[in-house]
Amino acid sequence: MKKIAVIGYGVIGKRIADAIVKQNDMTLVGVCDVVSDWRIQNAVNKGYAIYASTPEAEKEMNACGISVKGRIAELLTKVDLVVDCTPKKVAAKNVQAYKERGIKFIVQGGEKHEVTRHSFSAENNYQSALNLDATRVVSCNTTSILRTLTALKKAGLLDYARGTLLRRATDPWESHLGGIMNTMVPEREIPSHQGPDAQSVDPDLNVITSAIKVPQTLSHLHYWNIKMTKAACKEEVLEAFRTSSRIRLIQYDQGLVSNNTIKEMFLDMGRPWGDMYEVALWEDMLKVQGDELFYAYVVDNQAIVIPETIDAIRALTGIEPSAEQSIIRTNKSLGIN
């Protein structure tokens, strides 16, 4: 049983903590944060050990009646690996403490590749992460790109890929604080950062992305145009996608016509928070014309990296040398069929 700490109990951190608890080869030692509001109160209600990131945070937590086990330095003495889910750029500052203590660590996609010098996607490069000291689980959009393009690449169908991303404006729970309204904001640079980010995992991918921020918060929507290595039929492409257990083929004609209807389906399935760990790819929208392929899918920005992070823990700690077996175990624990 590997001992794991989660630093940062926000949108991603709380989901990773819950996922760790569901595994039979790792244990959650504690969660660490600076807040003392409803977010950390829910962690208390779940029985998680609470640690404070700063002396000021510890004082505030105690004032709110939260039983604090200690500060971050104490937590780090008890664990084999840290999953850092703190806000963008904060994790990069925490890394030095992990290195000084010889603790393995995982950061999320908001950090740069150079922080760990290894970026992770379970179905693509699990083996290269075995027993490393650190890795970065790439962002939600990059994870979806790697899952779909890796499936096509393994089937020998991928020549190059060009994608357009419609990006949610902000996280749903923060939509009252900012975001955009009655406008769309294109990213100035082409390629947008997701294409080069995917190449940090797989340098051989010929992929270019462009991105537009749109006024909604539920998820991201991708449109892809693929030049294949040969003319292929639709069924051959679908078989390639079916090789990934984390791509879920959905039907537009079954009423799944939008991101909100897809979200409702996963809520009805009983997923916590209605989380969609899979890429939801429209099967009946997918088109093949000779050696060209067109498809679209939806990405749950809050959930898709959760199974990847669990697999990354196994790879870095070496408790499961097989990518296939780790993915099977993670999928079973999270209800991914």
Rank of each mutant, 00 (worst) to 15 (best):
Y9H: 09
V11L: 11
I12R: 03
K14M: 12
R15Y: 06
D18S: 10
D18G: 02
D18I: 03
N24F: 08
V29C: 11
V29K: 10
V31S: 05
V35C: 04
V35D: 09
S53G: 15
P55L: 08
K59S: 12
G65L: 08
G65F: 07
I66R: 03
I66G: 07
R71I: 10
L76A: 07
L76I: 07
K78N: 02
D80S: 05
L81G: 01
V82K: 01
V83R: 01
K89T: 15
V90Q: 06
G102Q: 08
F105T: 02
F105L: 01
Q108Y: 01
H113T: 07
H113D: 12
R117D: 15
H118F: 15
F120L: 07
S121H: 03
S121Y: 02
N125T: 12
Y126P: 09
Q127R: 05
L130I: 15
A134F: 04
T135D: 15
V137A: 05
T142E: 05
I145G: 01
L149K: 00
T150P: 00
A151Q: 00
K153C: 00
K153F: 00
A155P: 01
D159N: 13
Y160K: 13
L165E: 12
L165D: 10
T170N: 09
E174C: 04
T183M: 14
E187W: 01
I190V: 15
P196N: 06
P196Q: 08
S200H: 04
D202M: 04
D202S: 03
P203V: 14
D204V: 03
V207L: 15
I208P: 00
I208R: 12
I208Q: 11
T209D: 10
P215E: 14
T217V: 11
L221R: 02
L221S: 08
M228D: 02
K230R: 14
C233Q: 10
K234E: 10
K234V: 07
E236T: 00
V237L: 03
R246G: 00
I247V: 15
R248N: 14
L249Q: 02
Q254P: 01
V257S: 10
S258E: 08
N259T: 12
E264N: 10
F266S: 06
L267Y: 07
G270Y: 03
W273Q: 11
M276E: 09
V279P: 00
A280S: 14
K287H: 04
V288Y: 04
Q289H: 08
F294P: 04
Y295T: 09
Y297K: 03
V299N: 02
A303P: 06
I304F: 06
E308N: 13
A312N: 05
R314I: 11
L316N: 11
T317H: 06
S322K: 05
A323P: 09
I328S: 10
R329T: 15
N331C: 07
K332C: 05
L334Q: 07
I336P: 05
